[in-house]
Amino acid sequence: MSAAKNINITLKIWRQKNAKTKGGIETYKLDNVSTASSFLEMLDQLNEQLVNERKEPVAFDHDCREGICGSCSLYINGRAHGPDTGITTCQLHMRMFNDGDTIFVEPWRSKAFPVIKDLVVDRSAFDRIQQAGGFVSVNTSGRTIDANSIPVPKDDADKAFMAAACIGCGACVATCKNGSAMLFVGAKVSQYALLPQGKVEATERVLNMVRQMDEEGFGNCTNTGACEIECPKGISLENIARMNREYLKASL
């Protein structure tokens, strides 16, 4: 890897005071950005500049900054989490950009994810879908048997684990032309449907989670496959197909 250098960029960022006001794109010039910095560090640098200029800093979501919490969102240059695959925004580095680049930064766009401020959106619709069925109601009164004592075929365990890698970041919704949440719900349905502990409640789970998903106002899946490509955790479309199967079984 070549040594880090400094680049000058132009940022076009969505600014919106709060959920009720109308927002718009603002342009900022930012000089001396190290290509070794992450995208979020670059935004920190911009905010420092804005604070020094006595302007309101840009609000954006972030937490762990190591690609596991799913907080950082951002639609960068027309792609969820920017121009790289298998990453969240905190894992996007400025070496992906060139000197003189103009970079668009926008919040996730979905009716179910309203903008709270600037680049921050309300993703509690995902929480409500989870609360509708994304759990196993095991008795944890103290005499529960150890989960590992139930034999699970390796193949199923692997698939369930891969589905459970979903961090609920919402990139699938943001990138889907229909604003559909089916990759998220598919992953959550799958991780339980594949395991013996989850099978017990599989019927109500899929019906309730899909009903909640529809009520939240997410769009319908048209199998474009964009979500699978933009998902930072590589959740497969097979999970949507599994949800479709589970839903059919549960409805008949």
Binding site: G78, T175, G179, N223
Partner: peptide, 23 residues
């Protein structure tokens, strides 16, 4: 329904990076 699911669109979008024209 799908149109309604995204009332505000993106200023910059790059759909060909992840999906086919037909889809």
């Amino acid at each position: 329904q799908n149109k309604k699911a995204r009332p505000v669109g993106y200023a910059k979008s790059n759909p060909s990076a992840n999906s086919s024209f037909a889809s």
